[in-house]
């Protein structure tokens, strides 16, 4: 990974982007890096655009919140519009394949992955989309070894959901 990643995950409430950001930060800690995780709270977290973030650093953490995202993942058009515009050229942007690509995004480099669809069709559980997404993010940013990511997932998911979530990880790793 780059020396410091400021990761922002956005979507709509209920898509699990907060848990996804927690898992990324947890994986970074397990891999011996420094990390912090936070999210926007409030009514906007219930259904509207929901934002979660993880800052991961190979060195000292410093300021624990994202100042300028080095990476943005958007799972809805509304959240992409709110958080995606006006980001620097070197910010890596990942959007779900179901999103209509706005002109401003089409004019720059970005990644696209069928995260939501894969969760439904390949894993068989729509609510595993966030776990699919952490695998995709990890692959793009090369944050931690896959087995460490799996350990972080195991630590944060409800007991009894391991099979579906590990499958989601596998599906995510092969999406790009």
């Amino acid at each position: 990974m780059r020396n410091r990643e400021e990761i922002r995950l956005v979507g709509s409430g209920g898509q699990g982007v907060i848990l996804a950001s927690v898992i990324l930060a947890e994986a970074a800690i397990l891999a011996g890096k420094n990390a912090a995780q936070s999210q926007s709270y409030g009514p906007e977290a219930r259904g509207g655009a929901c934002m979660a973030q993880a800052v991961i650093s190979n060195g000292d953490l410093g300021f624990p919140k994202v100042r300028v995202p080095s990476f943005l993942m958007a799972l809805t058009e509304q959240s992409l519009e709110k958080y995606g515009k006006n980001l620097p050229e070197d910010t890596i942007i990942l959007v779900d394949s179901s999103l209509e690509i706005p002109d401003w995004l089409a004019a720059r480099k970005y990644y696209q992955a069928p995260i939501l669809q894969a969760a439904i069709e390949q894993v068989g559980k729509a609510q595993t989309a966030n776990i699919v997404s952490v695998a995709v993010v990890n692959k793009i940013l090369d944050l931690v070894p896959p087995e460490v990511l799996k350990e972080a997932v195991a630590a944060r998911i409800p007991k009894g959901t391991e099979a579906a979530n590990f499958k989601a990880l596998e599906v995510g790793m092969n999406l790009l």
Partner: peptide, 10 residues
């Protein structure tokens, strides 16, 4: 404060 209360760190 909320910033520290809801922040996760190592």
């Amino acid at each position: 404060d909320e910033m520290v209360g809801h922040l996760r760190e190592g």
